[in-house]
Design a protein around this nucleic acid. Sequence first.
DNA 1: TGCTAACATCATGATCATATGATAAAATAC
DNA 2: GTATTTTATCATATGATCATGATGTTAGCA
Lengths: 142, 142
Amino acid sequence: MWLSSTAQTALRAVLYIAEHATEGPVRVEDIAAAANSPRNYLSKTLHVLGREGVLQSTRGPRGGFELLVPPNELTLAQVIQPFAPITDRRCLMGRAECGGPHPCAVHGRWVGIADAIEQFFGQTTVADLLPTPIQITIPNPK
Amino acid sequence: MWLSSTAQTALRAVLYIAEHATEGPVRVEDIAAAANSPRNYLSKTLHVLGREGVLQSTRGPRGGFELLVPPNELTLAQVIQPFAPITDRRCLMGRAECGGPHPCAVHGRWVGIADAIEQFFGQTTVADLLPTPIQITIPNPK
DNA sequence: TGCTAACATCATGATCATATGATAAAATAC
DNA sequence: GTATTTTATCATATGATCATGATGTTAGCA
């Protein structure tokens, strides 16, 4: 019932890139190792996110992938969408009629769940996933 | 993100059987036509529900499929389960660590959604899906 | 017994998601 | 401009889900 393997990997990958944003472009090689995903397949996946405007890739030495959207503005929906529709509001049992003026008896509740899911992915950002060490800088007593 | 085609078909099929429960066993042929599903594939699908104790099949003339569980006790979860896990509570991005004592920052909200879905399928019954003409028996004035 | 109606099952194929290895293309550094 | 580092892409393979057609099996009935 859940996210495709590719979509999950995309999330892990983007998260890893966000975590290493300060160090410049991140190599597919490293992302693949961290996200536990085959290199070339991940490359294709990230390429898609490039087309979507989420990532930027640069080739050659010191190249790699970078975020084009700041983590706190990048929703999980934006990362997942290209690989699978997050939800649709169609009938849970796939009946065409249910979309029209004669929905089945449970259609309302069903759509309610779809709404909750959509909200979750639409409002949660990559920043929410980052380990958030409360940054207390303790001055060195020496 | 949603139910597999097989699971959706199973729901439509069971609903159709429930609707025609009074007429004795329902033939795969008829169910297939109503549920818009290939005959033999549906046969296999219904067979699985037989093994699960949801349906009973009888062969030969006047044979077909019948419900073994009354519609108001038969949850959608029981119909769907054999074809796909409804939800799991694992990390939305597939990280093993998230299950343990160090869940990611959004794991709680994520599991909340899983709970809602599980409740929906676990508490909604086939009876809830039946067209519910509010049964008012008007005594015949003649 | 033999015919027919029905489900059961088997072998096979189509399609899609995922994966892999080889090769191409681009950017940088020397 | 050549070598090196990196992403891009292509051809192919694998596995799962879904589908189809042929054949097997069981039950009822004349």
